[in-house]
Design a binder for these strands. Structure first.
Lengths: 337, 337
DNA sequence: TTTTCAACTGCAATCGGTTTCGCAATCGGT
DNA sequence: ACCGATTGCGAAACCGATTGCAGTTGAAAA
């Protein structure tokens, strides 16, 4: 919002034309003569004219904006996702309105309202871990704005979903540890509210089961923040029968796990093995680089956004069945197993 | 933009009132009777009414949106900044439109246009390293939209600027290395287009000079990405007379430096000392945690945003002199020196 | 009974860009 | 010179929320 809001009217007045003509001239409408177009463009340029997208959006009922709600931008995963989304959004000539829920249910609700009020044409969302009630999402869907969930998804809503095959990713991780001869494997999972945490835990259990190993409940810890992960890991390491391997389900938990291990002075992978879901840029920070499942942030963002644009492209009354799209997260060899 | 765009008119029709009355009722205008207010609110609720902020914004000529342009969201610094900004933006009841330039001048230009077209009331920006011409910024300022630069700032424009005291931060870093007995200190700086790189280099030079040490130009390397930093560092380490300390000016360069050191199998701080500008969450990933200047991302974001709101609050014709605000980045002791 | 005033509510314009419809001028052809 | 077609442009409505102004109603005061 400027102090110098040059409008179509200003240009029109200067040239003795109508707003309509100026508008058309600027977008090369065939009805307008080349001479007029040229003079209009010249004046627009000299006046430093910028079209008011807000007005345009009001008229079109199209804002050309996609909304994104993430728990937080920190760490490696979500920035990667954002890159992927941005690429697609830009390709379609849209813009991205990014909001953070800070893991708070209330904030998430507010954010949704805000996106609706801003006439976004679609929403990409990864839910906060404190969210247990999903009415705010269904309201938006009923309102007619398509949502695609990614990573931290909600099922059983009329929305598409893009995520990693978490169960098999976790299964493969733990299997890798087992095949390396580890038998006392702990898991540092996240808030079990989240489907993603549940699924990664499920993969862990499946792998152990397959190897005929019992479940040690004291090896299963759940944490929300790196500090908590560090604390829990320290407890694990101080047990009389400590684990010889730790599976961390995210970069967030992993960073806490690693701190605890460092603090304890353990050597990786000699004293203890470590594996998890980590973006490349994160896992290669460590020495040796971690062996980890690539959580495919970039690809998830891209895919989620493409799916969203498919919805937006369609007539909303064509009821598509919600799709569930799984990506495979490849295991990246490091030296931590 | 929805398929179910409930408008004031819909509510008005249902109740046999006018749009005007409904609008006033919803915002508790004193002219409206309590009975009317109540019934309006009830209907609005049941219809799942959401005010169209786009329309409102057009009418008010206030979008309640702040624009943010950053080179990229990756790594640790900018996410911290965004957190700081968000906090303030939310406090003022505004929203944040985040755009990434991806370090490209052209994209940065586009992003600015976009923000203007979206009627943002102010802009926070950290410039791309490929930007050498700043006309796009001055055009925006002339247009009447206030800009506050942070971190990667532009001086001599009519805009406020919030940044670290880079020279003294760098000076202190290098001094720390010197006081630890290191004499062969290399610097891994960024693109020297950027004032921030120049200043951090200047601090480095000053410290050396103060200790009566000559400048070894082969110890000064400049790089844009972690990969480049890794490569350059490897070269440094392979010299016949390699440095015994490295000063990395950002988390981005630091991550490359560290990889090279790890690959070379050197021990920190025994074989080589390392220092830099790193957010806490980043520097404590390493073992030992890095000794580093805190780049104060959160605080910079907060401050920049507060300064911006001061500008927005003022009548734009009250010409304030541009302010330059320095924050001090404290040295965080780790174990890398 | 008339005046006065407060309490409510509606009309219509506004924000800036877009678009439908239609009009006037010009052109080509006969 | 006449007719239909084409070109170039403007008037006005529209998107949805807001607001200055004016109008209506009812009750209290004169």
């Amino acid at each position: 919002m400027a102090g110098n809001p040059v409008t179509l009217q200003d240009i029109a007045d200067l040239l003795g034309l109508s707003r309509a003509t100026v508008s058309r001239a600027l977008k090369d409408h065939p009805d307008i003569s080349d001479i007029t177009k040229e003079s209009v463009k010249k004046v627009a340029e000299s006046l430093n004219y910028r079209p008011n997208l807000v007005a345009s959006s009001l008229r079109h009922k199209k804002s050309k904006v996609i909304g994104l709600i993430v728990p937080q931008i920190s760490y490696y995963f979500f920035p990667s996702v954002i890159h992927g989304i941005e690429k697609v959004v830009h390709k379609f000539g849209y813009n991205l309105l990014i909001l953070q829920s800070n893991e708070e249910y209330e904030r998430e609700k507010e954010n949704l309202e805000l996106l609706i009020s801003n006439n976004v044409e679609g929403i990409l969302a990864s839910v906060a871990r404190t969210t247990t009630n999903f009415n705010h999402f269904s309201r938006v869907i009923d309102y007619g704005v398509p949502i695609v969930f990614f990573d931290r998804v909600v099922k059983n809503l009329d929305a598409d979903v893009v995520l990693l095959d978490d169960i098999s990713g976790a299964y493969n991780s733990v299997k890798t540890l087992l095949e390396a001869g580890r038998r006392k494997i702990a898991i540092c999972t996240g808030n079990l509210n989240l489907l993603i945490s549940q699924n990664r835990l499920k993969g862990y259990k499946t792998a152990l089961q397959e190897f005929g190993l019992p479940l040690h409940h004291e090896y299963i810890v759940s944490c929300e923040w790196p500090e908590e992960a560090e604390h829990e890991t320290t407890e694990l390491l101080n047990m009389t029968n400590p684990p010889d391997a730790i599976f961390a389900i995210s970069d967030l938990t992993m960073s806490g796990v690693m701190k605890a291990i460092h603090r304890k002075g353990l050597k990786i992978p000699d004293d203890i093995s470590v594996i998890g879901f980590c973006e490349d840029s994160f896992r290669t920070i460590y020495n040796p680089p971690l062996t980890a499942i690539n959580p495919m942030g970039f690809e998830i963002g891209q895919k989620a956004c493409e799916v969203l644009f498919e919805r937006i492209g369609k007539n909303q009354f064509v009821r598509l069945d919600p799709r569930v799209i799984y990506l495979d997260g490849p295991l990246m060899e490091g030296g931590s197993v």
